[in-house]
Design a protein around this nucleic acid. Structure first.
Lengths: 200, 200
DNA sequence: TTGAACTACTTTGTATCCAAAATAGCGCAC
DNA sequence: GTGCGCTATTTTGGATACAAAGTAGTTCAA
């Protein structure tokens, strides 16, 4: 099987800079998503193309592609001739989102219990350790990132690619909803560790 | 509230032609999706940009946007420097897809039962009538379109926008899987009518 | 002071252009 | 005849340029 795209994940650090100099469309979408999850881009903010283009050091062409992708995911909304804005979920959307998560997360956990091998459990535990550590240090940004990451990791171990993809869309939106309707810091789910003890 | 985008759905027929002359990106993505669902674009086929551009009468720019959208939805796969291809789902993906549908469709039905009003039921029944009619006439293309459309309609009436969006992605993929692994004409779900009798 | 209208500027939408990669076609050796 | 390697052509990737739409800023009138 041919290697279809160069893998940027395991590059020598010295090469990293060059890789970051030419981020591809997915990288850009990913970084915007991260920024939203870390509340650096609040709901409703405008994402001007030129601004992003110079920020990422690319032309508007790639930015537009990234925004098109993100709009299809629902993280940004495109208004013709007016530009792209970070989605500002309505109350109804918040309700729908949590209903959807209530539907799929138990399924994920069921799948994890059924499928998880030793290495999976190891990864989960490692993640929880990192999360506890971040909580200890009070590193707010790391906490947010790791908390979302835990759900994503569960979805990955669950093994259903569609559910995983859905979770990848719902997680950032959850962050937006929290910042909109639930300003005080919510300790999303501290008791998930139990789940693992169950399976272990 | 300002009107943000011209609504092409209720145009005078005489204007329709002009509207079709300049299809926007969503239209293009929609039409490609339809073509996949009607098995006019088989799994694995290459979607050359220039070819689509001349077919739709637009430049490659819009086609590329449409393709990036569809790739994010999972209906097409993009291989760098090689182009876009209609997704050819693996066996694992087929399994995942049906597992996901088994998870969300009962939820949809529950929501429909809980929420459906009179006008919703009317629409559902009208749809079933159209479907029965197409089956009567043996209009294969109409059957496929209406069959998928019924599930979409259910999802819409169900009222959860995320589940609706997910169904909009899973439906075309289901068509691909059927054409790949299940060649003989499968009468997907003839007994759904019962569902409605239940609620009525 | 407020509001409407006009103008200047900014930003988006789309096509076109050029470079880089991949594919196909051909010739040559074995 | 088959397979390898080279060149020519096609196709994609990405930036640029220009037109169209929107936004803001200013002036003038009520």
């Amino acid at each position: 099987m041919r290697k279809l795209r160069p893998d940027k994940n395991n590059l020598h650090p010295a090469r990293m800079e060059a890789a970051l100099a030419k981020p591809d469309v997915e990288d850009i979408a990913e970084r915007i998503t991260q920024a939203v999850m870390e509340h650096r881009l609040p709901p409703g903010i405008k994402l001007a193309e030129e601004r992003l283009a110079s920020a990422f050091g690319v032309s508007r062409t790639k930015i537009r592609q990234a925004l098109t992708m993100l709009s299809r995911e629902g993280l940004v909304k495109l208004y013709p001739n007016r530009g792209a804005f970070v989605t500002s979920p309505s109350v109804q959307e918040a309700i729908d989102l949590f209903a959807t998560r209530r539907l799929i997360e138990p399924e994920i956990v069921r799948n994890v219990i059924a499928r998880a091998g030793k290495s999976d459990l190891k990864r989960l535990r490692a993640h929880l350790a990192a999360e506890a550590d971040a909580r200890e240090r009070g590193d707010r940004r790391a906490i947010i990132k790791l908390s979302g990451g835990f759900h994503m990791l569960l979805a990955e171990v669950g093994g259903n690619s569609f559910i995983e993809k859905l979770m990848a869309e719902l997680c950032p939106l959850t962050c937006l909803i929290i910042s909109l309707y639930d300003a005080p810091q919510t300790p999303a789910c501290p008791e998930n560790e139990h789940v693992q003890i169950v399976e272990a």
